[in-house]
Design a protein around this nucleic acid. Structure first.
Lengths: 242, 242
DNA sequence: AGGCTTATTGTAATTATGACTACAAGATTT
DNA sequence: AAATCTTGTAGTCATAATTACAATAAGCCT
């Protein structure tokens, strides 16, 4: 972005780019990634936030994100950054969308590509690293005043999540390997923000074939123990009308 | 991308960026836009393509696209480029997703943000302009061998369209203001690639409230004239199961 | 034992769906 | 003018899905 004949795309520029490209660690600082990671804790949706340890937003909280590398696929950059900033590994990330208001980043033009994931917080150990000085889970309703346009990314991701939960079995990511039908129902309720009828929910879920009975029951609960199920990935998901 | 201390984000660099930012016409050449425009002609889906009049892909056909400007919102860039390349105006564009494989563009790192639209071809006059030497509609099934990763963008957009058509009333964009129920059914059939039952389709559509009767009939048709309807934008769209 | 909580099954009215049939309204052909 | 062709539109009906409940089961707790 720095030489003045940029828009000419001259031959020298072209060949310069090619050489530049060989340096794997090079960074463009024009395209960034931000990761919106949803977790479920005590029946509430939470978002994974990091505190910036350097740069123009030092000390402020926002979504984990950073610059893509020159020779790195967009998806790969998302995985790398999420891991380096928060310690999270083996998380399934999906692209949400690109955010590119001209004034979204102060002082220069940056387009960010947002990714999102649903995970179970207790399965992961958070480790702040790279440019992040701290990491924490924040209850969704308290996630306000994030840096840049991260509030907007969050709103967009939540919208997307609500749409997706009825079309793909993403809710299962927020649950333990073995779960009860009520736990599953609560996931749907908290994402969609509605109350569902228990008998009917159970019946619909069973029909999808997504549930594989564990032939086990809850233990140490002060009431009748519920049957445990696990998620059957094999089945093709049919649209779910709740 | 050209100075070697890029990744340091030095102060000089920062302030340089700020000055740079004031030049509205400046271009980054790192982020591009590509527009996937669907049209319907004689019951077939078509895609709007342009022939590159300059650059490394001169003479080849691909989706209309180009560089975003430094001070331009992503959405605005999409509208500008579509207009400048093809002459299309007043088209509703929606972001599809970002495509960012490291090797998707030869010689340098370019991430593209794809937008898509559904329009009625006969409503628009095509004018090749800017970097495009030609524009044309191409039947969907013949859209192969496009430049860069445009085949991939097309496949992704088609997938998205199929999902969207049952959740939002996008099919109406492909029809005239006043249309018959059979025309509407044909839109759904061609997008989804299935045959639908006429009486049942009509019944379901009427229940959505999306149809506003015009109290008019077709004219000059060699058979019983069908009632004409227009699209009622006011109604909240309820999921459509076809 | 009786009460509490949650799990699980059952039922009945209503509505939606899918595959058809039948009829209507024009235009065209005989 | 009648027959016929094409498409539009309405109706039927068996089946399945949805909803809103009621009822029962299985445990823990006091």
């Amino acid at each position: 972005m720095s030489d003045s004949n940029r828009s000419l795309a001259s031959d020298e520029n072209q060949s310069f780019m090619k050489n530049q490209r060989l340096r794997a660690e090079d960074i463009i600082e024009t395209i960034s990634i931000d990761c919106l990671v949803f977790g479920l804790n005590k029946g509430q949706l939470e978002i994974l936030l990091v505190q910036h340890g350097e740069g123009i937003r030092e000390g402020y909280w926002g979504l984990p994100g950073g610059w893509i590398r020159n020779n790195e696929d967009l998806d790969a950059a998302a995985y790398r950054l999420l891991h380096d900033l928060t310690g999270l590994e083996n998380v399934y990330l999906e692209q949400l969308k690109a955010f590119g208001r001209a004034d979204r980043y102060p002082g220069k033009r940056v387009v960010t590509v947002a990714y999102y994931a649903l995970i179970r917080p207790e399965h992961y150990h958070l480790v702040a690293g790279f440019t992040a000085s701290d990491v924490r889970w924040e209850i969704l309703s308290d996630c306000k005043g994030l840096i840049y346009d991260h509030d907007e990314i969050l709103a967009s991701g939540l919208e997307h999540l609500k749409n997706q939960v009825c079309r793909e079995p993403v809710g299962f990511n927020l649950l333990p390997k073995k779960f009860t039908l009520l736990q599953l129902q609560e996931v749907y309720e908290v994402i969609l923000g509605v109350k569902l009828d228990k008998p009917n929910f159970r019946r619909k879920m069973k029909k999808t074939g997504l549930l594989r009975p564990c032939h086990e029951k809850q233990e140490n609960v002060p009431h009748r123990a519920a049957a445990l199920y696990s998620f059957n990935k094999e089945v093709v998901y049919k649209q779910l009308v709740l």
